[in-house]
């Protein structure tokens, strides 16, 4: 791709940068315990959580495994497991 004038670039290109491989711990959701309250969705710094049908779904393409979701979950529905590479 040719470089653009003045280093001006389009929006949202960072989506090409899959940060999931940074992870050393992986959040695992217990669908029984999760009620889809959305607290984890709200706090996620990497926009890697969606609530679908009242269950939180983690986007492992971008999730860096920070663990905020697991720590903040009021129902302890998320646990951090060591990432197997």
């Amino acid at each position: 791709m040719k470089l653009n004038v003045g280093a001006v670039c389009g929006p949202g290109g960072s989506k090409k940068n899959k940060t999931g491989h940074w992870r050393s711990f992986r959040p695992k959701v217990d669908p029984e315990a999760c009620n889809g309250c959305g607290i984890c969705f709200m706090y996620c710094p990497d926009a890697s959580i969606k609530i679908v049908d009242k269950i939180c779904i983690i986007d492992y393409e971008y999730c860096k495994g920070c663990g905020i979701c697991a720590h903040e979950c009021p129902r302890d529905a998320i646990t951090m497991e060591e990432e197997r590479k």
């Binding site: 280093a7 001006v8 670039c9 929006p11 290109g13």
Partner: peptide, 9 residues
């Protein structure tokens, strides 16, 4: 037409 000005090289 959102664009990003002042990106990092």
């Amino acid at each position: 037409e959102p664009v990003t000005f002042g990106a990092i090289a």
